[in-house]
């Protein structure tokens, strides 16, 4: 389905543009955080900017523009928004768990030991803390 965008009223163009730029700006800030932040666990927070209001803003902008141009509700995009916001927590959680598991198995002292085995803390902390290990 395609709509004629030249029939778009000015208010819809302005409102939609604000949301589009806001969403894209938040996505950019998230990517900037991904590139600049110092450790994996802090970088884990950066993409959620893109997937919460980054995607939400762009989807809202697109919905405003299409609804106004087609003169009927176009809610198609909301699926993309719902999809991004429900799947990203799952991927981030799995990645976080994988990273914790890998760091623990390498004896990285900056990561807390497994929950429920606090009494073995002395064994876990036996390795001296190292600065940013360059492992793959």
């Amino acid at each position: 389905m395609s709509v004629d965008l030249s029939a778009l009223p000015v208010w819809a163009a302005i409102a939609g543009s604000v949301f589009l730029v806001l969403g894209a700006g938040l996505t950019l800030i998230g990517a900037l955080g991904l590139a600049r932040l110092p450790s994996f666990y802090t970088r884990l927070h950066a993409p959620t900017l893109a997937t919460s209001w980054g995607a939400g803003g762009m989807v809202t902008g697109s919905m405003i523009i299409f609804t106004a141009a087609a003169a009927r509700p176009v809610l198609h995009e909301i699926l993309i928004g719902i999809f991004i916001t429900t799947t990203t927590p799952i991927t981030l959680m799995m990645l976080g768990r994988a990273a914790v598991y890998r760091d623990r198995s390498e004896g990285d002292a900056r990561v807390p030991p497994a929950l429920g085995v606090q009494e073995r803390e002395d064994v876990q902390l036996a390795m001296p803390p190292t600065s940013e290990p360059e492992k793959t």
Binding site: H45, T48, T51, T88, P89, L115, G116
Partner: peptide, 21 residues
């Protein structure tokens, strides 16, 4: 997890403890 600023990392179901970053 979808809130920027908190990340769910580990959950121990027998003790009901949650490890959060």
């Amino acid at each position: 997890t979808s809130t920027p600023g908190t990340a769910w990392l580990d959950y121990n179901s027998s003790r009901g403890e949650l490890l959060l970053h």
